[in-house]
Design a protein around this nucleic acid. Sequence first.
DNA 1: GTGGTCTAGACCACC
DNA 2: GTGGTCTAGACCACG
Lengths: 127, 127, 127, 127
Amino acid sequence: MMSRTFNNTQPIYLQMIRRICRQVVRGELKAGDKLPSVREMAVQNGVNPNTVQRVYTELERLAIAETRRGLGSFITEDEERLKQLREDLKNEQIDTFIKDMSETGFSAEEIVEGVRQKLLITKAGRV
Amino acid sequence: MMSRTFNNTQPIYLQMIRRICRQVVRGELKAGDKLPSVREMAVQNGVNPNTVQRVYTELERLAIAETRRGLGSFITEDEERLKQLREDLKNEQIDTFIKDMSETGFSAEEIVEGVRQKLLITKAGRV
Amino acid sequence: MMSRTFNNTQPIYLQMIRRICRQVVRGELKAGDKLPSVREMAVQNGVNPNTVQRVYTELERLAIAETRRGLGSFITEDEERLKQLREDLKNEQIDTFIKDMSETGFSAEEIVEGVRQKLLITKAGRV
Amino acid sequence: MMSRTFNNTQPIYLQMIRRICRQVVRGELKAGDKLPSVREMAVQNGVNPNTVQRVYTELERLAIAETRRGLGSFITEDEERLKQLREDLKNEQIDTFIKDMSETGFSAEEIVEGVRQKLLITKAGRV
DNA sequence: GTGGTCTAGACCACC
DNA sequence: GTGGTCTAGACCACG
């Protein structure tokens, strides 16, 4: 009755927004691509249409998608905006991470080294 | 009426837990140290005693503090647990970060390099 | 003013947790069943909503129930977990009992025999 | 600074009472034996003298110990009472156990069998 | 309507 | 005085 694709720690609509942003950054969604209709997206995700509506509205506010009355929602054709989104997400995530680590008391060396080692392992291993 | 030490994006009790954990990791709170009484901590932070109560209960569940009825709450004397806490926080934060970055489509190189550069800048600059 | 379903020797929230666990073990609550809403459960038991909230939170931590924001709380659909709960409760109760009896100085024979006889009587008698 | 002989789930004074009762039942404390003075017992256990006082008072109320002004506290010389104590504890513990198990939905067979098996194991094993 | 959080204030057992 | 629990009632984000 309800998809377990989402966790409870964060609002579903935020998780959906993030997922779409990532699909854009990874190129799975391209400029001008049509997004599923609100209803379709809702049933696909086992989610309330209100929730999807909120997602699309928010994406519009972020200038990532635009809604054309009677036609549906589309990824913006402003490629510049999409490149910018990539950088925004990158900076945002890195800044948050560094701030968290610093406040917890880890040194710059520990941070860089920790990240480097984790990536070596995961690369050597599975992902 | 209420100290603005906290932001609205996350429950106060979680912010307090995190703050105490960080104080422990940074050595500002040591094994065996007494935490302020529930009421004291409450007034210090302009927060309701129930909120502090919840914080202390949770810290006890995490085996970071223990509570002695009628005496107060204390940082655990299990130094091993405190060392472990440091590693736990480190791993947790790094893992989350890497997972987020990977899912957003950034390569290992981009991740390490991004972190390294940000740290050079902040070191050269303010922090 | 307050239903006397509960006794004073143990916190109400613990008594409610235990009651729900037992309903699950006895099959009165099945995987996926919806629990009453926080408010509903509160009035049903003549108890404050906060108390019920705590119960549901704890049940979630025990992986016995899960909560879907805006939808309600449900018994987990992980049937395996529910079977495990039965065994957990069984072992826990037996272990505690045996530990108590041993520490009080009763021999294994006395324990088994004592239990056996009590059960014969109660079976012959009322229960 | 404080002995960790006690847990937080139950009042210390009740834990001390139970411990003394058990020592009596197991014969480690015999009729007429002198109990340590309040002060002595307090320091031995890293506990507040008030707490010990409460223990002795309660033991007196249970007719297990008696206090002689200026002399100290002693286990009662009423051997009959001590035998009775043994039976009381036995019955009490068994009844509580059976009631718990029944309410959780376990059958008489399951209860007896569960206890029997656990005892075989622990006997074969360490204890 | 649903759960999540928080405040205000109370009472209790315990040390 | 200290923690533990509970009530009463409120507000918010979410679905």
